[in-house]
Structure formats: structure tokens, C-alpha cells
Design a protein around this nucleic acid. Structure first.
Lengths: 356, 356
DNA sequence: CTGTTAGCGCCTTCAC
DNA sequence: GTGAAGGCGCTAACAG
């Protein structure tokens, strides 16, 4: 039924080893035989069996890319950029077939799913794995992931972290990591609001136990502390999530609890949109009555009405970088860890309080 | 280095065949031996080699999901839903390990990339493939894809189309397809505008040669024709793409070319946001001065200001359905083809022309 | 430059 | 119920 190397070899009148050499091109083969082999491949529509090749050569064409939410453009952009680099391969373009197959796995932010996918990838002896976005901060889970990644690394799988803090595998070795400056970005954002004159600033967090959530909240807190505004912080903070509905619900809660607030910072842009919706519903204008800010600078943020003040993370660049790192096309940053800068992007959704 | 079946067998004091049987559970094994084997697996942290298993059993843990743009929530939602079903497996949950690994491949809407990924998947002897979204309408490409899919099917790979028209493989056989009613949805949308009293309706298309683009445009045209409004159609149509920038640019072009228009329909929601931006920039209010409508009903559309009138496609449901179909957990619809309904969702961005 | 010979790690008949 | 043996399709020494 299926055409094998041997079939091609028979048709070309050579040994299967020769066919293999032609196909992999890492061994000298006479021009004429090469021609004949390629012709046979054409005629038979032969396609290598990746599993057999992988088994024999102890390699794999797969690279895993784990994301928390594939429907969220934050991860979409990251994954898209990484995949392009992975498909590009060592040199040539996708068409050349030199690249690998990026497997985008959607964990849904669920720690168990994260581990399960890692095991699935381990089974396939994946060439590499990129873990993107924040991860759950539970000792059990962290330990399990660390162990799994150590195992993968030991088995030759390249591991890259992108958008989460570095993980120290036992012995002090560190996984290659592109950390995002969530803390610094959040701090600058809140400072921006403080400098505009806001003193009652609400904050809507991301999901619990997530590194990203914690870091952004810490940055916010640091800015407040620097201005001696910690007292009220807890009352002005509402638990949320990274989606619009959560932003909407948390904003309503915050408005009920602290009607005096003049600004709301959301853990990301998507939630910020929900905040805007809640404000509109209450007849509050942005930014005249309440300023709103997000985080990430996703494409739609510039187009929101009013345009959203946010913190820009160079997601495309970071994803591409992670892709090159996992493909070993670029050497790891010194110490294995690089921090991706987060840049404040002031737009129309923030203004001085009471400004009309 | 790596632990193999033989290692487990040795440790458990049984043959490798027995270990295999325990692991696959499709063969009677004594309770006590089973226990011993499982313990050995635990202690050795054994993980099956998917490649070897696949080679020996002529199966695969991979299912491909091709998308045009992974950074676009349209595909993100589709892929996410499909992946969940695929990971779920025949019965159990992801954790049970019964499911397969969904490989989300980003073609970027590029026909060559589509073929390349299909070949890559073919190499891995993928268990199934889901092709989502519109595809390029060029005879060469259609033929190539048809041939490739026929080949995959012949090799036992399950193929499902989701969001694109059915493909007739030679002999009249048809690939399992979930087609979206783009034409009908677009028609109802434009009829909605017509019934509000609009007579000068601009249209911004998606990328050229894409089935989705053509169908939506045809639906729009059909509605106009029914009202005898075809004359001006060409002048009121601008070429675009499925992103915001394209919507923005095309809207500006349209406004210059036909200042009399009172409504603009964009090929999808994302482009519609760009349209809104262009209108705001020109000091035109939505919907008082110009009505705007999109397509897809992506999550952010309900939250836009004003909330976007659009056509809802049940993306999550469709993706999940495709996932179950590719996993053979549900039988194909009669004739192999089902049409997913598109429902008009009137919101605040459309109103009667001149309404204040 | 090319053919021959072993496996890679697992599943699967076939005997026991 | 369990073991032994052969082979899945390919690559990688090893000879020539």
C-alpha cells in the first residue's frame, strides 16, 4: 500500500541506503544516481516515514509550543511568530522542508494539562519545547514541571521559557528563558496614573496563582508604595481573569466598593475592555470620569474607543526569538536568561482626574 | 540513557511483550503481573516511545489542525475547541492519556504553506487532519490539495474540513465537511441594512481568491440584487483583508470614492473595527452618520463602542464538532456535508440612515 | 561513491 | 496468561 524506501530503491536500481543519502543530502552521491533516485521518488510519490526516521536516527520533527489560551491573541501572536521560525528550520524556508513541525498545545491555563502535554511531547521525543506565558505557582506543580523539564533536557529536548520566570533545575542550571518585565511595566503604568494626579486607583488582577498576575500586581503595589498609598490597596483590588467578562465583573465590584476611584488598571488589555464596558453602562466617561489602562498592547487596543493606555510587550519579537532559541539558531543569552522590556504606551484612555 | 520497554520488563521480571500488553490494555494479563509491571513503570519513570509504537503499530498520536491565522481569534476559538475534543480521546480525559496530540499549524493563508504542512503531517502518518477556514481558489492549488487529501485518506488519515466548502475527490466521494453559511449570513446582514433604509452600502472584502471572501461578497450582492441596487456595486466595494489595518484603509478609500454612503459592511469583525477607526478619524459618528457591520461575532464585538452588528458563527461548537468527527467519535453528517448556520446579530452599530 | 548489515523500540502473531 | 521471534521503515556504521 504505502511506498517505502525500498520501493524507491528498487525502482531506481540502487540500495535503500543510497536513497536515504540522497534524501538527507548529508553524504556524497553521484549526480546521475541522485537524478535517478529523485525521479523514482517523484514517480512513486514517496513520502518519508517520519516515525521510522525518527526512531532510527533518534531525532524528531516536532517542537512543542505550550500556550495558556490559544483563543487569546496574546498567545496567538507569540505562537505564530515562534512557529514561523521553527518551520523555517536551520536555514531554508518551510518549502524547503528543512524546518520542523511546531505543535501548538493549548493548556487552558490548567497545570495538569501542561504536564500532560509535556508527557505527550516527551513520548514523541520532541526536538524542543517552548513554554509560554505565566504558570501556576503551586509548589507541587512547579516541582513536577521542573522535574519534567529536567528529564526532557536530559533526553536532548531543547527547552525554552518565554514570558515566564526562569526555572532553576537542580544543581543551579537554568532553563533558557525570555522573561517579560511584567513587574517593571506595571510599575511604570501605575506611576503614569499617579503622575497624572490619580490617588484612588483600582486594580483588577489576573487569575490567582499565576506568575504573571503576581508580578503585575507587585509592580502596581511598588508604585503605590513609593507614593505612600498602600493603605487602601486591598479594598481597591478585585480578583479577575484575563478575559473581558472578568474585567467587566470586577469593575462593577470595584465601582460599588469604592465609588471614589478615578482610575482602573486591568491586568491585561482584554480585561480592560470589559472595564470600559462596565463604565459605559454606568454612564461614566473614559477618561473624563475614570481613566482605564491595560497591559500587553494587543492589536485591538489602539483601536478601542478611546484608544487604550497600556504597556507594550514585543510579543512577535519575543516569540520569534524563542523560536530561534529552541531551534538552536541563536545562542542563549548570557546566564541563560534575558528580560524582554515592557514599554509604557500612553493613549487616550488615561487623563488627569476630573479633566473635562 | 533512555528507559525502554525491555528495561521495564527486566525490572518486573516479565517479557517485554507482557509489558506492552499491560500498557495497551487490550489483552488479558494477570492482576499480579500487571501490578508489578505498573510499579516498574513508575519506578523507572518509563515513557513510551511514540515513534517506535507508531512504527510498529502503524498508528499515530498526532492530529493536524490547519489554520490561516493563529493570531486571529476566529481561528483561535475554532482550534481551541477542536483541540479539546482531540485531546479528550475516544472516551477519557486528557489526563487519561487516551487522547491524541493536536498540532495546530499556522499557514498564514499561504497555499504553499498549506501543502507543506499537509506533507509534514503525512510524513508523521497523522491520524487525522482538520482544515479550517477559507482556502485559496486557484485551480492549481485546489487540485494539489485535493490530490494530497485523497492520498492522506487512502493512507488512513481522517480528513475533516471546517469552514470551507466541500471538496469532491475523484469518483464523487466527498470529504467530511462542516461548511459555514457565509453566503446566507452575508445576505441577511445586508438585507438588515436595506430594511433599515440604507441604499448606499459600502462593502469591504476579505483577501482575494479566498472562498470565504467570495461567498460573503456573493451574499451581499444577492441582497442588493433583490433590491435592484446592483448598478453601483463595484464602486462601493473595496478590496481588503481580514485585519484591522485593511478595514481602516479600505474604509478611507470608500469614503473618498463615495461620500454618499450611509453604511459599510466589512468582511469580518476585525476589519469592521478598522472601519470604525477610520470613521472616527473623519469625525463621522457610528451609527448616526454611517452604520457599520462585521461578520463572525468574535468576543470583542459585543464590547466595541458602539456594539457591533454582525453575523454570528458558532465557532466553538463547529470546532468541537470537527474535533469529534476527526476522532471518529461521531458519525459524519448525511452526505458527508453539514452546513453551520450563520445568525444575524443586530446591535448598536447599525441604525436607519440619518437617524439622530 | 555505493551496497551490506545491524539495529532504533515497540507491537503482534505464534507457540507454549 | 506469558514468552519468543519477526518485522515496521529508516539510518548509520562498516566494508568495499
Amino acid at each position: 500500500m504505502t511506498v517505502t524506501l525500498a520501493d524507491v530503491a528498487a525502482r531506481a536500481g540502487v540500495s535503500s541506503a543510497t536513497v536515504s543519502r540522497v534524501l538527507n543530502g548529508n553524504y556524497p552521491v553521484a549526480g546521475s544516481t541522485r537524478e535517478r533516485v529523485l525521479r523514482a521518488v517523484e514517480e512513486l510519490e514517496y513520502v518519508v516515514n517520519g516515525q521510522a526516521r525518527g526512531l532510527a536516527a533518534a531525532t524528531s520533527d516536532l517542537v512543542g509550543v505550550l500556550v495558556n489560551d490559544i483563543a487569546d491573541p496574546f498567545f496567538g501572536i507569540l505562537a505564530s511568530a515562534a512557529q514561523t521560525e521553527i518551520a523555517r528550520g536551520p536555514r531554508e524556508g518551510v518549502a524547503a522542508g528543512g524546518g520542523k513541525l511546531a505543535v501548538v498545545c493549548n493548556t487552558g491555563g490548567c497545570p495538569e494539562a501542561e504536564l500532560t502535554y509535556l508527557t505527550l511531547l516527551q513520548r514523541q521525543r520532541a526536538a524542543g519545547v517552548i513554554l509560554t506565558g505565566g504558570t501556576a505557582e503551586r509548589t507541587g506543580h512547579t516541582r513536577a514541571v521542573t522535574a519534567k523539564l529536567a528529564r526532557l533536557t536530559a533526553d536532548g529536548t531543547r527547552v525554552v521559557l518565554c514570558g515566564r520566570p526562569p526555572l532553576t533545575v537542580d544543581g543551579g542550571a537554568t532553563t533558557t528563558t525570555l522573561a517579560f518585565d511584567n513587574r517593571g511595566g506595571a510599575q511604570r503604568l501605575t506611576e503614569h496614573l499617579l503622575s497624572l494626579g490619580h490617588r484612588h486607583i483600582g486594580y483588577i488582577t489576573g487569575p490567582d496563582d499565576r506568575t504573571t498576575t503576581r508580578h503585575r500586581l507587585e509592580g502596581h503595589g511598588a508604585a503605590l508604595t513609593a507614593h505612600g498609598l498602600t493603605a487602601d490597596a486591598a479594598r481597591l483590588t478585585a480578583g479577575g481573569d484575563y478575559d473581558r467578562r472578568a474585567g467587566y465583573a470586577a469593575a462593577r465590584e470595584l465601582l460599588d466598593r469604592a465609588p471614589e476611584l478615578t482610575a482602573i488598571v486591568a491586568a491585561n488589555d482584554t480585561a480592560a475592555l470589559g472595564v470600559c464596558a462596565a463604565l459605559r453602562e454606568r454612564g461614566l466617561r473614559v477618561p473624563q470620569d475614570v481613566s482605564v489602562a491595560g497591559f500587553d498592547d494587543l492589536p485591538f487596543s489602539a483601536d478601542a474607543a478611546p484608544a487604550l493606555t497600556t504597556v507594550r510587550l514585543p510579543l512577535h519579537e519575543a516569540g520569534a526569538w524563542a523560536g530561534r532559541l529552541v531551534m538552536d539558531r541563536e545562542s542563549a543569552p548570557p546566564g541563560g536568561v534575558a528580560t524582554v522590556a515592557a514599554e509604557l504606551v500612553p493613549r487616550a484612555s488615561t487623563a488627569a482626574p476630573g479633566a473635562s
